[in-house]
Design a protein around this nucleic acid. Structure first.
Lengths: 215, 215
DNA sequence: TCTGAATTTGACCATACGGTCAGGATGGCC
DNA sequence: GGCCATCCTGACCGTATGGTCAAATTCAGA
C-alpha cells in the first residue's frame, strides 16, 4: 500500500507494474485454488480476492488453466529448494534433520501452495505430470544415492530410502494439507510458535531415532 | 411401510434394488469426487460412470452436496473402524503396528475414499466439521490416553502422542493421496504386493524404533 | 504536447451446470 | 387382472462460468 510512492523513481515502471500485478493475481489464485480446488475455484472469486476486474485477470493469464499451472510451478520450485539442505549435510542426523525443519517451514509459510500441490497430485497431476517424471524423479534418485551411502557407511540403519523419503514428505506436508484438522484438534486455534517447535522436535526425534541416526 | 417382506429371501426385492442402486451411485460418486474434487465433479459424469441417467441420481440423492456428504461419511466410518485395533492391543508394538497395517490396507483398498476425505479436510471440512469436533476429537483423546499410559509404564519413549498420531495418519494416508506420485516414481506402475509389504514393514520399523517400542 | 503501445474494464456470449418435473414403466400384493 | 407405490427418464429451466471484445485510459519516450 505505502509502496506506491516509494523513493525510487523506477518503483512503478511499466515492467514493475506488470510483475506486481502478476504477483498479486498469483497470490490470490493460490489462496482460492487452495480453498476450493481447481474445479471449485472461479476466476471471478480470484479477481475479487485480488481486487481486480475479472477481465483484467484474463489480460495477464489468458485462461484459468494457465494461471493454475503457474501457481503449481511456483510451489514446486519452493518445494525443490528445500532439497539443497540435504546435499550440504555431512551425515543423516544433520541432513534429514535440517530437511524436516525446512519442509515444516514450507508447510507453515506456504500452506496454500502446499495444498494446491497436494490437490494437483491427488487428482493425477494433470498439468505437472512431466515434472514428476523428470525433475522429481531425478531429485529423488539423487537423494536415494545419498541415503544409501549413509547406510553403507554405517551411519544409519538399512531402511529403504524410498519409503523414508515418502515418510518425510507425508509427515511434513500433513501439517499444511491437514492443518484444518490439526487446528480443530488443537481446540480450534492454529499451532503457535512453541507448538510448531514441538512438532518439528517430535518428528525429528522419532524419525532420526527410527532410522538409527541418533541414540 | 415395507416391513411385510422383512424375512423374505428374495434376491431382487424393492428394498434390495434401492440398496444396490444407492451403492452403485455411491461407488461412482466416490471415484469421480476423488478424481475431480467436489467442485470439479459433475452429476452428469457420476451418472455416466454409474451407467444411469442423471435424473435418476437426483431421485436417490436430491442434491450433489447430499451425495457428497454420504461419500465422506462412508469413508469416515471405515477410517474409524481401524481404531478398534488400537484398543485391543496390550502394548505399543502390537497396537501401533497393527494400526499401521490397518491404515495402509485402507489406503490400498479405499484409495478413492481416502482422497475424498483428504480433499474435504484440505478445503476446511465444509460438510463434516461437526465430525471433527465431536467424534474425531473424542477418538483422538481416547488414543492419547492409551499412549500416555504406555509411556507412563515405560513401554515407549516420552513423545507427544498428538504428533505421533499425526505422523501415523500422514504416513499411511500418503500412500493413497499421493499414490499417483509414488506410482510415477515407481516407474509408472502401482506398487505390487511385495512393495506394499515393504512399505508397511519400513514404516513400522522406523516408527516403532523411533518411539522406543522396539530395539 | 503528441503518439502509440500497454493496460484496464464493463458489457457481452456460448456453454455447461445443478436441479425440476410430468408422464411413463415396473412390480409386488389383493 | 387391477391397483398403487415406487422407480425411471427425456426434456426443460435459471443461473453461473470461462472467456471475448472493443472502447476507454494510462504513460514512457520523442
Amino acid at each position: 500500500m505505502a509502496e506506491t510512492t516509494a523513493a525510487s523513481p523506477k518503483a512503478t515502471s511499466k515492467k514493475m507494474r506488470r510483475q506486481e500485478a502478476e504477483a498479486l493475481i498469483l497470490s490470490a489464485a493460490e489462496k482460492v485454488f487452495a480453498e476450493a480446488g481447481f474445479g471449485g475455484a472461479t476466476m471471478q472469486l480470484i479477481a475479487d480476492v485480488a481486487g481486480l476486474p475479472k477481465a483484467n485477470l484474463h489480460y495477464y493469464f489468458p485462461t484459468k488453466e494457465l494461471l493454475y499451472r503457474q501457481v503449481v510451478q511456483n510451489i514446486f520450485q519452493i518445494w525443490l529448494q528445500a532439497a539443497d539442505i540435504f546435499d550440504q549435510a555431512e551425515g543423516p542426523e544433520e541432513g534429514i534433520g535440517a530437511y524436516i525443519d525446512a519442509k515444516m517451514e514450507i508447510s507453515r509459510r506456504h500452506a496454500d501452495g502446499s495444498k494446491v500441490w497436494a490437490s494437483e497430485v491427488m487428482h493425477g497431476a494433470p498439468v505437472i505430470q512431466d515434472y514428476l517424471e523428470t525433475t522429481l524423479t531425478e531429485w529423488t534418485n539423487g537423494r536415494i544415492e545419498v541415503i544409501e551411502r549413509w547406510i553403507a557407511e554405517g551411519r544409519m540403519a538399512p531402511i529403504d530410502p524410498r519409503h523414508l523419503l515418502y515418510m518425510l514428505w507425508a509427515t511434513t506436508q500433513h501439517y499444511a494439507d491437514f492443518g484444518h484438522q490439526i487446528d480443530t484438534l488443537n481446540g480450534g486455534t492454529p499451532l503457535d510458535d512453541k507448538q510448531w517447535e514441538a512438532a518439528k522436535s517430535n518428528i525429528k526425534s522419532i524419525i532420526l531415532r527410527g532410522i538409527g541416526a541418533i541414540k
